[in-house]
Design a protein around this nucleic acid. Structure first.
Length: 421
RNA sequence: GGAAGCGUGGCCGAGUGGUUGAAGGCGCACGACUCGAAAUCGUGUAAGGCGCAAGCCUUCGGAGGUUCGAAUCCUCUCGCUUCCGCCA
């Protein structure tokens, strides 16, 4: 049932070699496409020989079915069959050693035409909203003073970058969650809870590395084929793995809430203080399965929904079209929303939404059945509704009033009507 | 964790060594009937690879093995169900 599925279609790579090479180079990936194509050539050649032998084997089996033939040619056919078996074993070993799949897995998704070239600094601002505040107390100092957060005991219990949220700040996190959940359900997203661990196949299929110890940002469970999820995007992608979905059922819009576990190795520094970059945080994520021709439109819709939230929370932000060099392997295009930090006097990442086109879907074998009856790989997209820890940072920086913190108006219903805490 | 049973196409479900890539049903598509629809009838309908095509090959949870030949027999493995144990 499970076919060989590739990150990118070998046929597509063959027909669009230059485009694939360029996208990989733009993204900064080291992949030798020529070698990959050579491996595919070799594979095809061996496959041809194998198929010829198999055809002969099947033919012999067919002849053997009648008792007559068995009497007449029995031993002759059996001998030929035995010889074929040996040859096949030899050729099939060659095929296994070719490792085309392994090579294909390293090819990243191609980028869409309107993705800027270059690295992190080359991302393009496409919109800015709101009025910047010019001054505020550091969120960690402010929250620590109010006894709202305890990193020291987080360290004692689990290690650096683990924390406890306490009292009104913990309640405020819940209020943000409730507000965002109502918002997204109102938009027609189907809310679901998700497994917080996934198998290696789902992890890699979504585009995350499960346990390649060094680069991996994910926590793997020792002795099990399980990793802690880094985002609800991962189980939400796996949800429809190996399924064929009727065209009339698309788009499928899901929302998942989960803790997100990330090693964040080597990211200590000035701008990662406090709650901004931690090993565990809660996040509400939206996820869409759609027709290939609709993914661009869906991407804009996801972005619009994200913007609506920051406008209602009245937090100044801008939208950035992320440059190729800063895109992960699965994304064809990505928008980040960054809020204006009056503490750091710069924009800092708050949410992110990606169009992964057919990359994740191909890898996990998720297809659409067209009205014509044909099947086709569909497209997937993901976007942050709210990432709670970072949203708290943004609110803490933007809503200070002396010793107190104003509760954003849209959150007050979820804070028992309190206007400040 | 222990025991037993099961894993077949978009879905349900036959099939226990040789025209079975797979009966039957549902669903879906097209056609007929109808003013139109429902119902009914007819035809078609797994996915993937190679090939201009004819056609060939692969796949019956996964990986090995036995055999001239495997959905069917053996081993391992994963999943599901039921019973027992444990427990929120």
């Amino acid at each position: 049932m499970v076919q060989l599925m590739y990150m990118l279609d070998i046929k597509y790579i063959r027909e669009n070699t230059d485009k694939v090479k360029k996208s990989a180079a733009d993204k900064g990936y080291q992949v030798d496409i020529d070698k990959l194509l050579a491996a595919d050539d070799a594979r095809k050649k061996v496959m041809g020989q194998i198929e010829k032998l198999r055809a002969e084997r099947n033919d012999i089996a067919k002849q053997m079915k009648t008792a007559d033939a068995m009497k007449k040619f029995g031993s002759e056919l059996v001998d030929r069959g035995k010889a074929i078996k040996e040859n096949l074993a030899h050729l099939e070993l060659q095929l296994r050693e070719n490792d085309l799949d392994g090579r294909l897995a390293k090819v990243p998704n191609i980028t869409l035409p309107d993705v800027p070239l270059g690295g992190e600094d080359d991302s393009v601002e496409i919109k800015a909203w709101g009025t910047h505040k010019t001054q505020a107390m550091d969120h960690l100092d402010f929250a620590t003073k109010r006894d709202w957060v305890d990193f020291e005991r987080g360290v004692k219990v689990a290690g650096a970058k683990f924390y406890f949220l306490k009292g009104d700040l913990a309640l405020l996190e819940n209020a943000i969650y409730q507000y965002a959940l109502q918002k997204i359900v109102g938009k027609g997203f189907n809310f679901m809870t998700v497994p917080h661990m996934v198998s290696g196949r789902i992890m890699t299929g979504t585009g995350f590395a499960p346990r390649s110890s060094k680069q991996s940002d994910e926590y793997a469970i020792d002795g099990e084929d399980l990793s802690l999820i880094a985002t609800a995007e991962i189980p939400l992608t796996g949800y429809h793995a190996d399924e064929i979905i009727d065209e009339s059922d698309l788009p499928l819009m899901y929302a998942g809430y989960s803790p997100c576990y990330r090693k964040e190795a080597g990211t200590y520094g000035k701008f990662t203080r406090g709650l901004f970059r931690v090993h565990q945080f809660n996040k509400l994520e939206m996820y869409i399965y759609c027709l290939p021709e609709e993914s661009t439109k869906m991407h804009e819709q996801i972005l619009a929904t994200e913007e609506e939230i920051w406008q209602e929370l009245n937090i100044p932000y801008h939208v950035v079209n992320i440059a190729a060099g800063d895109l992960g392997a699965p994304a064809a295009k990505k928008y980040d929303i960054e809020y204006w930090s009056p503490v750091d006097n710069k924009y800092r990442e708050l949410t992110s939404c990606s169009n992964c086109t057919d990359y994740q879907a191909r890898n996990l074998n998720i297809r659409v059945r067209r009205k014509s009856g044909n099947t086709e790989i569909l497209h997937t997209l993901n976007g942050t509704v709210v990432s709670l820890a970072r949203t708290l940072v943004a609110v803490l920086e933007n809503y200070q009033a002396g010793e107190k913190l104003i509760v954003p108006e849209v959150l007050q219903p979820y804070m028992n009507g309190k206007k400040e805490i």
